[in-house]
Design a protein around this nucleic acid. Sequence first.
DNA 1: CGCAGGTGAAACACTCGGTTACCAAAATCT
DNA 2: AGATTTTGGTAACCGAGTGTTTCACCTGCG
Lengths: 242, 242
Amino acid sequence: MPHILVVDDDREIRTLLTRFLGGHGYRVSAAKDGAEMMRMFEAGRIDLIILDVMLPGEDGLNLCRRVRAGSATPIIMLTAVGDETDRIVGLEMGADDYLSKPFNPRELLARIKAVLRRAGGPGAPVSAGETTSGGGRILAFEGWRLDLARRELHSPEGVLTQLSAGEFDLLVAFAEHPQRVLTRDQLLDLARGRVAAPFDRSIDVQVSRLRRKMEADPAEPVLIKTVRGGGYLFSASVKVEK
Amino acid sequence: MPHILVVDDDREIRTLLTRFLGGHGYRVSAAKDGAEMMRMFEAGRIDLIILDVMLPGEDGLNLCRRVRAGSATPIIMLTAVGDETDRIVGLEMGADDYLSKPFNPRELLARIKAVLRRAGGPGAPVSAGETTSGGGRILAFEGWRLDLARRELHSPEGVLTQLSAGEFDLLVAFAEHPQRVLTRDQLLDLARGRVAAPFDRSIDVQVSRLRRKMEADPAEPVLIKTVRGGGYLFSASVKVEK
DNA sequence: CGCAGGTGAAACACTCGGTTACCAAAATCT
DNA sequence: AGATTTTGGTAACCGAGTGTTTCACCTGCG
């Protein structure tokens, strides 16, 4: 069930889209401005953002660029009618598609499907002459290199470090939200896409396993710090490479 | 008398096309969704499919792919006006032509004739799993070369590696969707054109056989990685050569 | 100083995936 | 056609990965 984040300052449009997309099998969250959007984007696992260009405060184009700086999450921009300029700038900023207001909901649905299909679906085979580099990002921190496309972790010495699927997913969750305290709930959502059961300790165990593989001294963790009563914190600064 | 299958959820378009094409010497059947379409397609001998992209339930692009998995029957896609994305994806999925709505019936007629002429030459030989447009493509990755036309795999050392038909199809499915987690369902659909039975382990076994032939150390696979709870991932980047 | 809640770690249980063996269907060879 | 080989799928076993439980320990507090 893809999770869509709708960003628009018009309350009516937000409720309309929430209801419409919800009725078509999507999980929908809504934000009314950039600040709210970034908070939600960093907290939950978002599969696609529908982003109005005209927003109070920071505008949509800027937000688009900021999201793109650290993530390949698909973005569909909503532009004012016939505003060619916004459309072009939007695509340059890295938006995946655009739609001018007022729009036909069915058309929005079609674009959402198309964009999601391109981004992660089974379709979209490689086209001739291209090297595939879809979401080929590499996250680099403290000498480590985390290759999201190949699902590989390379140590500072350059050796391939074997991680289990769960360990890898958890590390990605950390590396995509560095220098922030993440609760066990958030980590569970980001890495496993599920919510915590009472007395759920699985994240603790996985953190411990990650530390054993990555920390010089697992008893004195440097990369993944414990925040008592809060959760865990990934302390390295992360650079997005590709 | 060629038999055309029209697939569109709009009743008006169906009757319009049925009457129009019928009047021009074609036998026409109509379906309102994917399920109906597949039923008719499998029941009768269909010479050409006219397929709307936007459909209730399974969408046109998916249907196109499913038909292509087991047949070379020509397909003309109907896309929403100016939807470049759908058009491109549609052609990648193996559609033979596209037309954006609303269209001129005479233009549709011209395209039908053209497509049938191209397809229905001397017998139109089909090999399952082959994409129509991608005649002589070679997919290259990590030194390996996968020749789709000859159905041959050459190792980095240049030696011909023997693969069974099923192994070859599965490898093609992987190489056409690199660096993406593919579920067993998707792989079964892509490589075999069928859906998974409960407790279906056939993909696992085929993956194991592929690894034995291609991985330096099958116990620590580098090319085809396992994503526990998710499926498999082809981790090499692929270049299309011809 | 004792207590309560929080965390790390070891041990265990359960699930999932890799692999082998085997069988039936299909292809190939006499 | 019949025999033989190849191939693909199923069943079964085993090991790896993941979550739960438990206990020890630590920290902060009364």
